[in-house]
Design a protein around this nucleic acid. Structure first.
Lengths: 339, 339
DNA sequence: CGAGAGTGCCGGAACGTTCCGGCACTGCAG
DNA sequence: CTGCAGTGCCGGAACGTTCCGGCACTCTCG
């Protein structure tokens, strides 16, 4: 139970204790100004001893910097563990840099009347037409998006972290092709999830198909599909194309397809490959029947926050673009999280 | 791109504009003090016109209240969509109450040297022995846990929101029993996830078994299980007990079991029931072969934040306990999110 | 008409910090 | 011995609020 404790110790308490001025104490604590090394040591010691911890409000008020960044996740997209991991990566990176991570509401009105107290914003998977996102972009703080905005006029990001999906798709298909497979199908999430991810996946897929003179086969499948809908799409898929590769482009879909596919006689193996482009840790990664691309969501989140930090500190310049690397199963994990 | 805009308009700007004092403006904006109604209207109008928005840092500094609460999710538990939804519910409730939601790092050292700027903390699924959680509990702010702490000496919560799991288990089993099923098995997550949830599930299950003179059958199964491990446990399960009810106590497990069970000849239907105690939206809810208890994670998160708010405002008293209601499939959704 | 209550508004201090400018002292070169 | 650079420290203003106490004025009632 919280001990509703005594008044916090301030910088003047320290000053009094040490017989110094508050200025000197402040300088000593932050390595500013001209202070004798012994004095610095003394100040730091007693600060630690008395359990001094700076008052954030006061520092902000003076310094005009909040020490917090906001994180926005579009509402339609929740319920995916992917974002959870992204968030964890982001909060870890923020924590290591002394930054708080604030989750942003998706209440547009609240946003205007009481803008969040943040120095900058990270937005995951910017979806075109998202009014909340547009409101956030209009705020007077830098915005970094994970995945590029598809409507740059409405949402102009100061920085973007992207995954080179087309290349990964190509690589996955090339490998399958080398094993003799050549009739790939692509399952997309429904329209409302239309992001640069979906766009890139389609690009990679179409390019590969064109190059290999194969007719593309693309269908949308709802993100929370009923069994009937699943069966319907699979029926169509098998009768239309009888694919030997199925690319699933949202988390958990491949796992969900496993049973109906096997029931229909399609067993993953040398002659049939089931690919999850966003592997789900519980239902997919452990399952050797599924080829799961690992987007490494935590690292993705980390990279996004780091880019925002760099922008805030001026270590990166305004329209900054970075790449985040995913991992194709069997390959080594990249040494650097991003470049 | 962020427009690095002009200086923000302050309360004295408003005062100057209106020919009033800052005191009157402040009072008018917040409905304090004695101000003529017309004056209030005038002030509010020009405030809106000039786009005035209060400086949080200054307000905090004066009022000694941050306007933010922290949210802690134990690291082992991430990768579950459940928590994602919980978080969304929490952030929505916070937003509606003008509170920011800060995600708390799991870095103990950082926590001590730079305690998060929050008025209170919500911790999901407190796990015994979690050092970070203990550090948070030791902070001088109220703590609300979703699920009760199993080690109340180490983690003393000021408030707790709980789900009446034993009753739900009993009800689920009773209904199955009424349909002639009577050999239930229980699958638990591994030890490291040992929370009040797991404890309650076991209690409900054991009680029911005892009452119906059935031998309990309980096994742990890793949260990210390999196919081999899954097969192993299922083999043991079928040969030991040949169950007609299987209770799965973490999200996604039931979906994962579907295929191997069917392969082993166990098809969900009138004679065999597969229950997910924490239904997964993608792989389970849409699937009519699985009976999914809906914990309504978003409402759970909401209830937790509201309890914390009440504690902060003094509307609730220190050791407060509330109940959050889940939904058994087919039943109506409870009108009130919590009591 | 005078006292007292009520109304509308205001000045200034305080919250805990940072930072600008300056002050006293030391030591060294000329 | 003087001048000047360098060193260590400090006072006070400023950041934008809130809130305590008070002031002037009006109204009401005896």
């Amino acid at each position: 139970m919280s001990n509703m404790s005594a008044r916090r110790v301030t910088i003047v308490d320290l000053a009094a204790e040490l017989g110094l001025s508050k200025t000197t104490v402040s300088d000593a604590l932050h390595g500013r100004g001209r202070v004798a090394p012994e004095t610095v040591a003394q100040v730091r010691d007693t600060a630690a001893a008395l359990g001094y911890v700076g008052n954030r409000a006061a520092q902000q008020l003076r310094g005009n910097r909040v020490g917090a960044v906001g994180l926005y996740i579009p509402p339609v997209v929740r319920s995916f563990a992917f974002y959870m991991e992204f968030v964890f990566g982001a909060v870890a990176a923020a924590g290591e840099n002394g930054i708080d991570l604030v989750l942003l509401t998706r209440d547009e009105a609240a946003l205007r009347s009481r803008p969040p107290a943040v120095d900058g914003i990270v937005a995951i998977d910017p979806l075109p037409g998202d009014r909340v996102l547009e409101a956030l972009a209009a705020l007077a703080v830098p915005l970094v998006t994970a995945g590029r905005p598809l409507d740059p006029e409405a949402v102009a990001a100061d920085g973007t972290v992207e995954v080179g999906y087309p290349a990964y798709i190509r690589e996955l298909l090339d490998r399958a092709h080398a094993r003799g497979l050549h009739r790939p199908a692509l399952l997309l999430p429904d329209q409302q999830f239309h992001s640069s991810f979906a766009e890139d996946v389609v690009i990679g897929y179409r390019d590969w198909c064109e190059e290999h003179r194969v007719e593309p086969w693309i269908r949308e499948i709802p993100v929370h599909p009923s069994n009937d809908r699943v069966a319907e799409v699979l029926d169509e898929l098998v009768s239309d194309l009888d694919p030997d590769i199925v690319l699933c482009s949202y988390q958990g879909l491949a796992g969900r397809l496993l049973a109906p596919l096997e029931r229909g006689g399609k067993r993953p193996g040398p002659d049939f490959e089931l690919v999850s482009l966003v592997g789900d840790p519980v239902t997919e990664f452990g399952d050797e029947r599924i080829t799961s691309l690992d987007i490494r969501p935590a690292e993705f989140g980390r990279a996004s926050v780091l880019l925002l930090r760099d922008l805030l500190e001026g270590a990166a310049l305004a329209p900054a673009n970075r790449t985040h690397e995913a991992v194709i199963p069997g390959d080594a994990i990249p040494a650097a999280a991003s470049r």
